[in-house]
Structure formats: C-alpha cells, structure tokens
Simulated assay, not measured.
Amino acid sequence: MSDPIADGVVLEFREVMSRVCTPVAVVTAFDGERPHGTTVSAFTSLSMTPPMVLVSLDRGSDLLAIIRETGTFGVNVLAHQQADVALQFARKGADKFDGVDWTADAGLPRLTGSSGWLACTSESLVDGGDHVIALGNVVATGHTSADPLTYHARIFGTHRALEIAS
C-alpha cells in the first residue's frame, strides 16, 4: 500500500529538483565495436586531484552493464544546440547513434560538437536508491567554445554570464 506522506515527499522532491539547473551529458561506452550511450543530468565533478567525476545511471540501464564489464566510460557534455541529441539518447533502443556524428577517442565514443569531453576509467560503482553512481577517474579531456546545454524547470536551455552593472 502506498504511503500518502511519502508520496507527497516524492512529488515535492521532484518539484524542488526541477528547479536545480543541471548540465546535460551523454555517457557512452563500447560493447565490443558497438557504441552505446544514455542521457544523464546527474553528473558533476568530484575531485581535482586526482581528476574525478560522478555520473548517476539507472539500475536497469544497458549502459551500466557495459561499464561494469569494461570499466570505462565517456562523458559528452552537450552543447546548447544538441537538445535533439539529448532526447535521442534519453529513449530506449539500440539505434541511438543513428544520424549522430561521433568518433572513437581514447577508446570511447565521443559525440561531435559537444561542449566538453571526458574519458574515464571506473573507480567504483556505488548503490544509490534506484540508481548506481559511477565514480570515474578522468584519463583524457577535450572541449569546445560552445555554450553548454542545461536542464531547468523541465526545459532545455543554456547558461550565459549575466551582465552586472558596476
């Protein structure tokens, strides 16, 4: 039976979290020669020394199983014009890379045009509710000058510096 208080907390939690501006990234890996990827918004830096990040993946994710097996993953920080890529990688299916420009970089799929790129080795996988947190050691990087894609209030946008009067 459902707990109405807990249900209310879950709904309110979703509303609160929708107000947090998050980066939009596609986490990628290879299953043999076949690229896999999924859109995430739970991604952040963890450590500067050594350089580390964390990403949160659904427990049922096919990509998570590949990361468990290979011990590597890429993080493509999407650029503001890549909302269509975010949506494509957010759905289920084996055809997510159809029509998407990408290359292999540091042994991982790298999406062309992304704002930033990180290649990682998996340090550890930590259970966290209905997700698993992948802690990654950053072994290769790259970036462009493109503004990042962000997600806030259930819509895509970007971040630009405010002009503050002196």
Score class of each variant (00 low, 15 high):
G74K: 00
L149C: 00
D147Y: 09
L108Y: 02
Q82K: 11
H159N: 14
D84F: 11
L125N: 08
N137C: 11
D127I: 00
G136E: 02
L118C: 09
H80F: 12
S124T: 15
T150D: 02
H152S: 11
R110E: 02
H143Y: 07
G99C: 08
S124H: 11
F97P: 05
V138D: 05
D98T: 07
I133V: 15
G113H: 03
I133G: 05
D101W: 05
A94W: 12
L64H: 01
Y151F: 15
V77I: 15
D95F: 06
A119W: 00
H131K: 13
H152W: 15
A134Q: 13
S114R: 00
A146I: 06
G129K: 01
T112F: 00
W117V: 11
T144C: 03
I133K: 07
V138G: 09
H152L: 14
L111Y: 03
A83T: 10
Q82S: 09
V85S: 12
V139F: 14
E123Y: 10
A134Y: 05
F73T: 02
T150H: 07
T112C: 09
F73Y: 13
A146C: 09
L108E: 04
G129Y: 05
T141A: 12
H131A: 10
H159Y: 09
A65H: 06
L118P: 01
T103S: 13
D127G: 15
A153Q: 15
L125H: 11
G116H: 02
V132G: 11
P109H: 04
E123L: 13
G113L: 05
D105M: 11
A90Y: 01
A65Y: 00
Q81A: 09
G136H: 06
A94V: 13
L87W: 08
L64V: 03
E123R: 14
T103R: 13
F97I: 13
S145F: 05
E123F: 09
H131C: 08
K92F: 08
G136S: 04
I67C: 12
R154G: 07
D98L: 11
A86L: 07
S145W: 03
I155V: 12
P148I: 08
E69Y: 11
T112G: 02
K92P: 10
P148S: 04
N137V: 12
W117S: 06
G93W: 07
A106E: 02
H152T: 10
D127A: 13
L149P: 08
G113Q: 07
I67R: 06
A104F: 01
G142I: 01
V85E: 01
G142F: 03
A83E: 15
N76H: 02
V138A: 10
R91H: 09
T141F: 13
W102M: 06
T150R: 06
L135G: 00
G128H: 14
A65L: 04
V132P: 10
E69R: 15
A104M: 06
A153H: 14
I66K: 00
A153I: 06
D101M: 01
S114V: 05
A119C: 11
D127K: 13
